[in-house]
Design a protein around this nucleic acid. Structure first.
Lengths: 169, 169
DNA sequence: CAAAGCTTTCAATAAAAAATGAAATTACTC
DNA sequence: GAGTAATTTCATTTTTTATTGAAAGCTTTG
């Protein structure tokens, strides 16, 4: 059975302007949530790709390294932004962009925002006990501030479920 | 009229545990929205400070450089996270933390999120015209994806005013 | 208006983050 | 199960970002 000549498509051709636009846009979005350029590049390319792409195709097209591609795809997979698709007769993994864009935001909220708010609220408990050991004049101002911060964090925390619901539809 | 001996308070004493907790917490929050450590340090210190602090006090207490302090305070001022307070008989500026914590989030939304969404939506227009020049088979998949992304971005944009209203009370 | 105090600026340096690619690992094929 | 293809890992290098501190620029004071 004759096997593939690897990625015969337009692997090493220059990026089209459509691809460039997409890539630039997603680089920006991903940077916003703290992900490196290479991750945005990969997603941007996949987003406008009409076919699933194998890792070596991505590498050639974007001119990034093996390591960056592998790690970038791992991130995208764990965030659910990309999924791999079975291609009969080809042993490479092939990737497509998952179009549920809300997943990025959701992952960011669940994995960054929510835990950070939780930890901050714990920290405030600690700070409140520390404040109780202060001389009275300093104590009251510290306590007021902590109270205020706590309030605000709780407010933020209470908003997250709503936000998540909004995002998933 | 006898003038100040500069910052007679506890300027160069080690940080208290309360201060350390506060600083660590704010470093984390500020990093989340892409601001450097020094900015978080300054805000964290000011947040639990019962008195307004001058720049040289901040420098001594935190052990950061003049430049970092000046630039950090500038950022905090422009974001509205800190305000300077007049201290009679002292020509240095004195800073206090603004307790309207929502300002950070608001500034982030107004200055990062909103413009980025706007630019992305423009970009999509461009991409839509580019897509129209594609061969038919590629064209329809690209158009579907763009349509979907556009929808999602518009949704996000429509949520921002609500979010802002929620944050400001 | 000169001198001193305070703040900002910015070129140089240091620290952190990301990318590279060779080597190790895993998975598939015959 | 040996051989090869695909993928991951990770020590090193590159790039990016933040910090430093000397010098310049304001402002106040006497």
């Amino acid at each position: 059975m004759t096997r593939l000549e690897k990625s015969p498509e337009r692997s090493s051709e220059a990026l089209t302007s459509l691809e460039v636009e997409s890539i630039e846009m997603f680089i920006g979005f991903f940077k916003l949530i703290g992900l490196p350029k290479s991750v945005g590049e990969i997603y941007g390319l996949l987003f406008v790709s009409p076919t699933a792409l194998a890792m070596d195709g991505i590498i050639e097209r974007l001119g990034i390294s093996l390591g960056a591609a592998s790690q970038g795809l791992k991130v995208l997979r764990t965030v659910g932004a990309v999924k791999s698709v079975y291609m009969p007769g080809d042993r490479r993994d092939h990737y497509v962009a998952d179009l549920e864009l809300s997943k990025f935001a959701t992952a960011f909220i669940q994995e960054e925002l929510k835990p950070r708010l939780g930890r901050a609220l714990e920290r405030i408990e600690t700070m409140e006990s520390l404040a109780r050991t202060l001389p009275l004049d300093e104590r009251s101002s510290a306590e007021e501030r902590l109270e205020r911060l706590k309030h605000w964090l709780e407010r933020g925390e209470s908003m997250l479920p709503w936000l998540l619901r909004f995002l998933v539809r």
